[in-house]
């Protein structure tokens, strides 16, 4: 684990060993639940979760140096207590939202630290986070940062926007060139994943009276984020196209058949309902078709149930026929899904 100074721990509190930090500062969890002087921290922790839930980045006011000594630890405490409250509530939606918001907060600091020319330690520390926590070797090259293509790809595939595709990047000698902003943005998802995995791995403390009220409020808060969706019965254009090809006796390539079968299985159709669709294929063989769909459904073979490939993948097989109705979905399974 990276060794942390006070500054760093306030910016990246998720890197700290929570229990150890409290102990070092001479506190126990019990005190936060009972001591009225510490109630302000529990309030701040709740606010931190609340703003995260609303998609805002937690940003307590004071940052001037006179208050630094109190503000920095307060920031760390509020983070640690927020985790305690989240663990007590056991609410995954809130944990996810909190992790993402904290990741975006840390991303801002990372971005600032990467270019803090005045402060070499901050810059080195940010580069160290890339390397030690996310295994990304990042180097400064003039106004840019460069990272090896293979490292870049492992993170960039999380993005669906075209601008993140390697072909739309400045690539030279095995390296990808990124701006500071892009470098920090590149690891946002992993940062969120890292934070949420640390939260999930933390022990759940026993409930104290002093936390009960806040935990109940969290349950109320979470209710706002329950989403009801409906799915229309219409098929997306890629699936319609595949069915038309088959009906007209065209030789739909293997990938197209795989896409069609996984999609229909995903929509709850049975193997018996799907098999006849392939009847017009030039190489139609009922036994083989049934066998293959059974394999895909996980009923036989390795018991792996295959899911419908992503729009990205379908596009790279030239089988995407997107229409405005697709509405930027990233997998055909999402087609026609609407929030109520």
């Amino acid at each position: 684990m990276i060794s942390l100074g006070q500054d760093e721990i306030a910016k990246y509190p998720f890197l700290a060993e929570a229990g150890q930090y409290l102990k070092d500062k001479g506190f126990t969890l019990e005190q936060f639940a009972t001591d009225p002087d510490l109630k302000i921290i529990v309030d701040k922790a709740y606010e931190r979760i609340e703003s995260a839930a609303e998609g805002k980045i937690y940003n307590p006011k004071a940052d001037n140096s006179s208050e630094k000594d109190t503000v920095l630890p307060l920031n760390v405490f509020s983070f640690l207590i927020a985790i305690v409250l989240l663990k007590l509530s056991g609410l995954n939606t809130l944990i996810n939202r909190f992790s993402l918001a904290e990741a975006r907060r840390a991303e801002k600091f990372l971005e600032r630290d990467l270019v803090s020319n005045s402060n070499k330690t901050s810059e080195e520390f940010a580069i160290k986070i890339f390397r030690d926590v996310f295994s990304v070797t990042i180097k400064k090259a003039g106004d840019y940062f460069v990272i090896p293509i293979s490292d870049y790809l492992q993170h960039a595939v999380n993005f669906h926007e075209l601008e993140w595709k390697l072909v739309n990047r400045h690539v030279e000698n095995g390296m990808v060139f990124l701006s500071t902003h892009e470098s920090a943005r590149l690891i946002r998802k992993e940062l969120g994943g890292y934070i949420s995995s640390r939260i999930r791995a933390a022990n759940t403390p026993s409930m104290s009276k002093g936390f009960e009220d806040k935990v109940n409020k969290l349950s109320e808060l979470a209710k706002k984020f329950v989403v009801n969706t409906i799915v229309s019965t219409e098929y997306p254009p890629c699936i319609k196209h595949a069915i038309e090809e088959l009906n007209s006796g065209e030789n739909l390539p293997h990938f197209g058949r795989f896409m069609l079968a996984t999609f229909l299985l995903g929509r709850g159709q049975t193997i018996e309902e799907i098999v006849p669709l392939f009847k017009n294929a030039p190489d139609w063989n009922e036994k083989v078709t049934r066998y293959q769909i059974k394999q895909i459904s996980g009923e036989t073979g390795s018991n792996t149930k295959y899911s419908c490939p992503s729009c990205d993948k379908i596009e790279s097989h030239d089988m995407c026929f997107a229409t405005p109705d697709c509405d930027n979905i990233i997998n055909p399974m999402q087609f026609g899904k609407k929030r109520l």
């Binding site: 790809l153 492992q154 595939v157 601008e163 596009e315 790279s316």
Partner: peptide, 18 residues
């Protein structure tokens, strides 16, 4: 990841801005 490398090599999904 290899899929992204393929698009690079085949020069597919290119943005005019780049």
């Amino acid at each position: 990841e290899r899929g992204d490398l393929i698009d690079y090599i085949m020069f597919r999904r290119v943005m005019p801005e780049r």
